[in-house]
Simulated assay, not measured.
Amino acid sequence: MKIGVFSTFMSPLATPAMIRDFGRRAEGMGLESIWMGEHVALFDKNTYGYPGSKDGRIPVPEGGGMLDVTATFGFLAAATSKLRFGTGVALVPQRNPIYTAKEMCTLDWLSDGRIDFGIGVGWNKEEVEACGYRWEDRGARCDEFLEVMRRLWTEPVVDFAGKWVKFETMRLDPKPIQKPHVPIIVGGYAEAAMRRAVRFGAGWYGFNRDPAGTKEMLAQLDAAFAKAGRKRGKDFQIIITPPVSMSVDAMQAYAEAGVDRLIVNLGSQRPEKVDPRMKEIETLVKMAA
């Protein structure tokens, strides 16, 4: 099982020097990848709370915010040579699909094929609407946008006539280094997310899942594959970020559940917290070796 780290870099703690040093340290200790979450803006009031915290709010430092995924991964790619980078997750229904296709294939090109495109439909209604889209149809829009991107990554010339996207004889180059395209890793727990993983995914990503919860979701995933007349193959990756409180003893349970990549949450980015946490994660890397 491969070990990576989830760290959504936030200002003012995540300075250029901190991010560069963190990436080189992660690569030097044998971590397989760095994953980042995405939110372009936060709101003082939300219809739905953030599911990853008890109070429903994203823990952002006072006066700071989340850094952009694309720019940060470009910066990290230049500072490293082996680490993979994963979006955990990119909020496809509120993104422009043509710009997103260009950003991801450019990152793949410049990093020499080290990008995983983790995707989801999101939980923040206000953010989706502020980006110019409707909340209620975000699932269907996500599927159409993914189809647009997949075709732009793999076909020399594309015509497309969908509900949200229409164009003729479009070319998008360079094509991704990875074939057939940048791997799409689908996140989410609803039945629609499972169908999306079967249709588009090279893998499924679960966040804050313990071993029991992982097994439960994989049963649902396999049911979705069966409903589509297929069986989950060995090349379909299962990627999990466990709870921050996960003990090293739980790693074997994840391996037995069929997890391919364990993306451990860094937690706080305060300097006095990062060093001891990275030492804990390094222990997992050595155990998995």
Score class of each variant (00 low, 15 high):
83 L>I: 09
76 L>Y: 10
127 E>W: 02
62 E>T: 11
89 V>W: 11
115 I>K: 05
126 E>H: 08
40 V>T: 15
84 R>G: 08
134 R>I: 00
38 E>K: 11
49 G>K: 03
52 G>N: 13
65 G>P: 04
89 V>M: 15
133 Y>M: 10
93 P>W: 10
137 D>R: 15
146 L>E: 05
91 L>G: 08
58 I>W: 05
130 A>V: 07
137 D>Y: 15
65 G>T: 00
112 D>P: 09
134 R>N: 14
124 N>R: 02
85 F>I: 00
67 L>F: 09
99 Y>I: 15
130 A>E: 02
142 C>H: 06
131 C>K: 09
148 V>I: 08
93 P>V: 11
80 T>V: 12
134 R>A: 14
64 G>H: 05
65 G>V: 04
60 V>H: 00
98 I>D: 03
99 Y>T: 14
73 F>K: 02
130 A>P: 00
120 G>I: 07
134 R>L: 02
57 R>H: 09
117 F>E: 08
68 D>I: 00
75 F>P: 03
101 A>R: 04
126 E>G: 04
77 A>F: 06
148 V>E: 05
148 V>C: 07
122 G>R: 04
104 M>R: 00
117 F>G: 14
94 Q>E: 14
71 A>C: 08
130 A>F: 02
105 C>T: 15
103 E>V: 02
132 G>A: 05
52 G>E: 10
64 G>S: 01
70 T>K: 05
43 F>I: 03
84 R>E: 11
141 R>K: 14
72 T>H: 00
50 Y>A: 05
119 I>W: 09
61 P>W: 01
131 C>R: 09
66 M>H: 04
53 S>C: 10
54 K>T: 09
55 D>T: 10
144 E>A: 12
118 G>Y: 08
148 V>G: 14
94 Q>C: 02
110 L>Y: 13
134 R>T: 14
52 G>K: 06
71 A>K: 09
43 F>G: 02
86 G>S: 06
67 L>I: 08
39 H>I: 01
145 F>V: 01
101 A>K: 08
124 N>T: 02
46 N>A: 07
54 K>G: 01
52 G>R: 11
72 T>I: 05
104 M>T: 12
127 E>D: 12
141 R>Q: 11
90 A>H: 04
121 V>R: 10
131 C>F: 11
101 A>F: 05
139 G>N: 15
91 L>S: 08
89 V>K: 12
79 A>H: 03
133 Y>E: 11
73 F>L: 02
60 V>K: 01
74 G>T: 03
94 Q>G: 00
39 H>M: 04
114 R>P: 13
108 D>I: 10
63 G>V: 09
119 I>E: 13
104 M>E: 00
136 E>Y: 03
56 G>W: 05
73 F>V: 07
55 D>G: 13
